[in-house]
Design a protein around this nucleic acid. Structure first.
Lengths: 343, 343
DNA sequence: CTGTTAGCGCGTTCAC
DNA sequence: GTGAACGCGCTAACAG
């Protein structure tokens, strides 16, 4: 491994000149700059990241904590990670994932204190999350992807679940639907304080009530079988149902299968609107589902920028932001049966 | 942030003594050791990882490259990551994930050269994989989780697809099945050189032929809908079918749904054996699927140990290893219809 | 068993 | 525009 010293000698300049040529902190004449660059190329020089961050007292690593390794990374998270990594790179940083469980807040804190990262991106934030408190107390730069119950003074970017569920209900109501059920994640996730389940439920309920409609919301396990069972129960208790909003990809597979088996036509007899989905899931069903797609990439980008603004005081601050999911028409939503004409 | 210097002063010892007390490289008397530990505690001392690896010329970071961010992480990978992280920690290292696409081999190489990691774990290795060549040429310690076409001199741990498929066929044949089809991943994945698709297909085919049976293997997209279509086609072309081996979790959902819709009883009329699955997927169907579970955790552990042995010459070498998936009985496999009595 | 000291590779303040 | 020199926090000889 060639060092800066080697480059300097080969280029016939001083060590610091090489440093300046590299960082651009100080003007360097085009001639010497070229000589330096040649030397670097010839030697295959790579600056030593450790020495650099030791001397500069700053790291260019951003750590993304993704705790739900047990369940794996969903498509939404994948989009998020890709965008976050690209943004970090564009800003001269490196995004790395640290596979820590939610209970490992102290480990996360210590790693940052050891200089392993300049700041932390927290995913899968629960309504009450120890990690947030720990990082806040330690004065470590962080940004939540998601939100705790109370967000005052806590930098975050998140999906706007309230707006998304309201948009979903509004879309269906415009098409004449009056009896719309909501299929959420499992009761276990709700009880564990899984924020999306809470916020979406609250949003859906409010959206229905505000339109004078009766909410029917269900918590369903993430499995096709549970999805089928949920449909069976719903049709039983609410026969007038004409539309379903689902926020549970795996269960939605079962929902579709059960409806098909019962010869309930999608979308003519039953509309399905799958919200907070990852890319591609809509096309995995037949007919392709109408979805509201998570703003994963946008959140990744904004999350990184927000974190960088926490780390580097000189950067412009970025606002906390909530982004709704965007409607992607498929063929699983139609005018409510019995509704006159088009919308 | 307190430094070692601060600790030394507070404990009334020399700086190097603190270093030795920390690393254990040299004996330190219990008395002074205690004083040092007290001082560290009182100051909330955290060793600076950058300075340490700069001085020692070694990093304690292991990078796991996971390229399939496009598709997200499956459950198998999640098991792998958890075990790998735990093993790394137990060995005094840190596992971090680097989200790089397969085309970014040079970036990976450069990051290691910059000292950002001591070695690299490669996942989703294709039959022909640029990353492997790049790392090998650069002399960077690495271990494949998976295998290229040619594995001579290329450290790896992987699923034993040949053995797994043979075990699967053997299990079904013992139960009297003679007409057994195989549902693989998509043709696209195969054409992209996705190694599991190739190896499992070859293994299944050989396993059938060696028993005088006719292989019927299909490449199916990873979607419930494609799974349903595959079943329809299979029943059409091979009506004597009594068992299916699937290596495609999402498609399997559709397979089950289609069979149910056609009133083909699982497992009485059709056995389903889902191989290379992640934990929990078996229970997501009804009846719960009989599966052959990927040795994710074991691969994670062995992969890390193997990488460490590449990094540290003084460690005992570990052999390349192939581990078959393990049968986990569910209720989707039974004696072939028409088979007299039990096995 | 402990202390002293010379680097590790680079950033950065000073003088020139 | 350039170079010399010091220090970032720590490891690892080298001396006792």
């Amino acid at each position: 491994m060639a060092t800066m010293h080697d480059v300097a000698r080969r280029a016939g300049v001083s060590l610091s000149t090489v440093s300046y040529a590299l960082s651009g902190t100080r003007p360097v004449s085009p001639a010497t700059r070229e000589r330096i660059e040649d030397a670097m190329r010839e030697l295959g020089y790579q600056p030593n990241a450790m020495a650099r961050s030791l001397a500069s007292r700053k790291s260019n690593v951003l750590a993304l904590i993704y705790p739900a390794m047990e369940r794996g990374l969903g498509g939404t998270v994948a989009e998020f990670v890709s965008a976050a990594a690209d943004t970090a790179r564009a800003e001269g940083h490196h995004l790395v994932l640290w596979p820590f469980r939610t209970t490992q807040a102290p480990e996360i804190r210590d790693l940052v204190r050891q200089g392993m990262a300049a700041g932390v991106l927290l995913m899968e934030v629960a309504l009450d999350d120890d990690r947030v408190d720990t990082l806040q107390d330690a004065g470590i730069p962080y940004t939540m992807i998601g939100r705790t119950r109370d967000v005052t003074g806590r930098p975050h970017v998140d999906i706007d679940f309230e707006r998304t569920t309201d948009d979903a209900v509004a879309h269906l109501v415009e098409l004449g639907h009056r009896h719309i059920a909501f299929i959420n994640h499992s009761t276990e996730s709700r009880d564990a304080g899984y924020a999306p389940a809470h916020r979406a439920d609250a949003g859906y309920t409010a959206a229905m009530r505000s339109r004078g409609l009766e909410p029917v919301s269900m918590y369903v396990d993430d499995s096709p079988h549970a999805g089928r069972a949920a449909v069976a129960r719903l049709l039983d208790t609410e026969p007038r149902l004409t539309a379903l909003i689902t926020m549970n990809e795996i269960a939605t597979f079962g929902v579709v299968a059960e409806l098909q088996q019962r010869q309930i036509a999608i979308p003519d007899a039953m509309s399905i609107l799958s919200i907070v989905t990852s890319p591609g899931v809509g096309d995995m069903s037949n007919p392709p589902l109408t979805t509201m797609h998570s703003p994963g990439a946008e959140l990744g980008r904004l999350g990184v920028l927000k974190l960088l603004s926490q780390i580097d005081e000189s950067r412009p601050g970025t606002p906390d932001v909530l982004i709704p999911c965007l409607l992607e028409p498929g063929r699983s939503v139609a005018v409510a049966p019995g509704t006159a004409g088009a919308r």
